[in-house]
Design a protein around this nucleic acid. Structure first.
Lengths: 142, 142
DNA sequence: CAGGATCCGTTTCGATACTG
DNA sequence: CAGTATCGAAACGGATCCTG
């Protein structure tokens, strides 16, 4: 046994600051739904296969807002609704999310799917396309 | 309001399969300590600044083992100790971890640090160096 | 009727004391 | 010193209620 000298010095690894976002199942699910599924409404998030419950969803939406990762506006046609959307900080998480997808595919590989093939072979294009989708929604609605 | 047609079809986004690993604060901390700090022992993980408690640590080490992300051997000098190490699947998470680091730096920016500058400007080299460190430990000890 | 707050039974977490 | 047992605290799921 022989511990190598780490090339990263103590407390210089800032992953800690992301633990509240990345290290939480529900925030990740919400971000996934917004980022890749184009969802914006409370009721849409409830439809995610993980069956998030309403109190948890409300809590995490608040948390993500206070962290500056998402924000919301009033629904233009329905005063009782809000439209949640990713801020630039939130959109910035796409690189993390894509790496997660690639990792799952590479090592935990579930059934092969054409969309994963596409993401794998055209990663930058996929990221750009996703960002464009998000931004075009923002331009129309904000 | 105008929901764009998502380019990712329902249930084709496999992030779900990573939620147990990525969506858990403590597993992420353990992986960080192994990956970047070169830690291998139970007692070393306890020294992380997040102050993981012993039962949670034991639980997560078990969980990570059962997921195939880490494995362990008996300590060569001390029968009561185990040496935990990242498997190939675990090492494969480095791209995710690095993206998290870059995201934190870009958007949540804490104090600027030289090591982050280094990671930012030489990302592939940093990844390679980290992998090499891990692999050289593995070669010596497994 | 939709968002989301509240209440409550159950599960999980985590700090600490403890064991080998 | 690695790992377990215990037990109070917190999170969760689900139903229900409230408000606009």
């Amino acid at each position: 046994m022989n511990t190598y000298k780490s090339h990263v010095e103590k407390s210089e690894c800032p992953i800690a600051h992301a633990l509240d976002v990345i290290g939480d199942r529900w925030t990740l699910i919400i971000i996934r739904e917004m980022m890749f599924m184009g969802k914006h409404e409370f009721g849409e998030f409830l439809e995610a296969p993980e069956k998030i419950s309403t109190n948890i969803l409300a809590d995490r939406l608040k948390k993500l807002s206070s962290l500056g990762i998402i924000d919301f506006i009033e629904h233009p046609q329905n005063k009782t609704k809000k439209l949640y959307y990713l801020t630039d900080i939130g959109v910035g998480l796409i690189d993390v999310m894509v790496e997660v997808i690639l990792w799952v595919d590479k090592y935990l590989s579930t059934a092969p799917s054409p969309i994963i093939e596409n993401i794998k072979n055209h990663t930058p294009e996929f990221i750009e396309k996703t960002k464009k989708n998000i931004q075009s929604w923002n331009e129309k609605n904000l």
